[in-house]
Amino acid sequence: MSLQSILEQIQGSLSSMAPTISIILIILAGITYAFAQMQPAESRGKYTTAAISMLIGGIVIAAIAAAAQGIASTSQTILQ
């Protein structure tokens, strides 16, 4: 097995893992947000913030994983 194919396998695994993590985080964000709504007003804010952080984290992972190829190819032209 060549080095290229090993690296492509790792890239493939990570590329399929990233959306899964992203979706898990978004679902967790939803659950946390729902949980926050069930909490009394004084502790609701803390859970809501955590839910929004998870949502943003999920979106960031999805965005960066989707744009990874573009980031790599665009960055190659920076010093040209």
């Binding site: 690296l7 790792i10 890239q11 990570l14 590329s15 893992m17 990233a18 993590i21 992203s22 985080l25 967790l28 964000a29 952080s53 998870m54 943003i56 984290g57 999920g58 979106i59 960031v60 992972i61 965005a63 960066i64 994983a65 990874a68 190829q69 980031i71 790599a72 960055s75």
Partner: peptide, 18 residues
């Protein structure tokens, strides 16, 4: 480089989420 970007993306996302 792409692998490194994806790992970095996961780290940023998880770091921000938690």
């Amino acid at each position: 480089i792409i692998i490194s970007v994806i790992i970095a993306g996961i780290a940023i996302g998880l770091g921000h989420a938690f």
